[in-house]
Write a protein that binds this DNA or RNA. Structure first.
Lengths: 207, 207, 207, 207
DNA sequence: TATGAATGAGATTTCATTCAT
DNA sequence: CATGAATGAAATCTCATTCAT
């Protein structure tokens, strides 16, 4: 990357960080471009050199933040030796829940802004992003656990991801109806059931 | 209710209906008070006789619409003779999913705006609302299926409600990753697992 | 006064009291008719049965409150035996300053809203108001101290009244540049000078 | 000052002049931001780049206009050779009264909007404002007339300034109870008395 | 008389976007 | 590339006044 490209990238990051910072505190619709550029310490016009509008930066942010979480969890999973698909997904889910607990503001991106099917499409399109090949991870995942003969793996991923976020949202945000730690056992048990469902014979599913 | 009070109630409903109508088509933040009053056919100032601001009417709407769905599903459940808790919840869930499929705009109220623990608190506070006693329903529910010795029933309700909405959102809105009908079998199976989890011995849950 | 007239008078007083109460706390322009009727506990339409608008009630209030102060001071003066005009005016001024200190909100009516020459005209027009003849007081005043051969008595009254209020405003409102008690000696000395000026030969005045 | 800063200053002045112009004709509360920007020939949003609201511009205006009057009178005083404190203050007062007579709209800023003690504090804080050092004038004033051993000079200034404005207001605005020229001799005599009071021994003052 | 819901003109304020520097 | 003053359309909100009851 050229020096000038690098400088551009830095300013873009400056705006993204500022926006993330503000979106964590107030809703996107209550945030103005002015809020963002003031926080970022750049001129108002500069914003339009990098983004079209608020929606544009918000989407970019949602995608990047979500991507970061997934990559972080995936890398962590790579480092441990787990050969069982249920344990692998539990590990993965647990890592994500812990990340969300540590940065609850991410829940709103994770919870509200992401269309998971679209997100998976984006990952598939995306080449080796900088230093991590997410698509390879995605493809390898089911190879690694190739003994698993999963039915509708995409639906499974979709259901599990949505389930994790939707069941953790309130517990993390306001401890209701219980703490995250208290709800975790339920979540893992249910994830197990979901996986078993997709491992089992399809005739069973359709009644 | 006096004639004048009745008229006031009607005007309030006029505004609520107009807001619902518009919120179904565009986001709350893209809707102006002017849009609402124009649709309702009342003067701008009139809006402020009934609501403080957009957030205020949106919350009222979210609560009422959600309440309507719940009551409708509950009434339908009352009319059938089901003595098994799993079947009852399946019936209830199915009814809700069908309502949401028929009126996808409700998903946004259901999906985004409701804090279920707060909603249940509101129901508990609420007296016999007009013609239906929702609290009584809530209390009766577990009595009726009294054989069921549920662990953490509130957590179960919370998880199931969140699960239903989060897993149906995309299928209803854009048929991804599959149609509602295709995902339903998975949903019911998973609900069964969730209930079984809460019926089983707690030592089992906590690993 | 008939019973019905009395009732009307009571409702008018209700509105006046409410307006006084609110005007004491916020400026007239920041007060709405709604504020007044809410405080008074009457309907909005009722306001217009008694007053034309905000200006109307504000003026009525300024006049009445100022009139009350003057009458109170005059009655108090009547009760003491003072035969010297300087002492009489000192006594009168002191009484007014004490009234204003006890009810600083009156300063704004006294200070801002009153045109003294117009006020004196109004007193002259006014008949025996209820139980006190202010005009008689005004006429008697200079008779009582008839030895005093005052030049331009109206200018003197004007200057003294304006002087009292303008020099007391800040001391009463925020103790600046000193307390009322600290500025009083100066005020009385200056009043004495003003009176002496009007007692002295006119050739002296015009240089 | 940079070219761009200069342009900003000009636009600020444009708004101030427009506001002054309108406030001279109608009350502040009857003036809208729209009136001001229309008169100034700038866009509505531009107003908010320079002022927070109407109160904000009105205060700035009150301060600046009053400051201008004081500086004008002070400069005029500098040009004449007067070594007697009484004559100096008479000259100063006369100059101010003449300015107010020539621009009666200033009376409302002078009369209503200024807290003299606060104004003097502001002058003390203010550095050499552009081309005139008001604080130096203030400090020099009593040095120049150093023979004068004044008691409570700040109270004296306060009383005199308030007295001038309050006794001139009606005469200038509507010639009541007499013309400005007719009341002037009284005013100067009274000012003399006030100064003498502060020159005399304090035991005398406190009775 | 008294009421208070309804009105809608108009005031305040915000803010995405442009463009000259 | 970067700036930030300027714009003005549009949003929010207020409130004096009316009028049917």
């Amino acid at each position: 990357m050229s020096r000038i490209q690098n400088k551009k990238e830095q300013k873009r990051k400056l705006l993204m960080d500022a926006a993330y910072n503000i979106f964590s505190k107030k809703s996107i619709s209550n945030t103005s471009i002015n809020d963002i550029v003031t926080k970022a310490g750049v001129a108002k016009g500069t914003f339009y050199l990098y983004f079209n509008d608020k929606i544009n930066i918000a989407n970019a942010l949602a995608y990047e933040k979500t991507y970061d979480i997934i990559v972080k969890a995936a890398r962590s999973l790579e480092r441990v030796k787990i050969f069982n698909i249920v344990d692998a997904i539990h590990y993965f889910a647990n890592n994500i829940i812990d990340q969300l607990s540590a940065a609850p503001e991410l829940l709103d991106y994770f919870f509200n802004a992401i269309d998971w099917t679209e997100f998976i499409d984006l990952i598939k399109q995306k080449k080796n992003s900088g230093d991590f090949d997410c698509l390879k991870l995605y493809n390898d995942f089911f190879m690694k656990y190739k003994k698993a003969d999963l039915k509708d793996p995409e639906i499974m991923i979709f259901i599990i991801m949505r389930f994790i976020v939707s069941s953790c949202y309130s517990p993390i945000k306001n401890g209701k109806p219980c703490s995250v730690e208290n709800i975790k056992p339920y979540i893992f048990k249910i994830i197990t059931s979901i996986i078993n469902l997709h491992l089992s014979d399809s005739t069973d599913i359709m009644k």
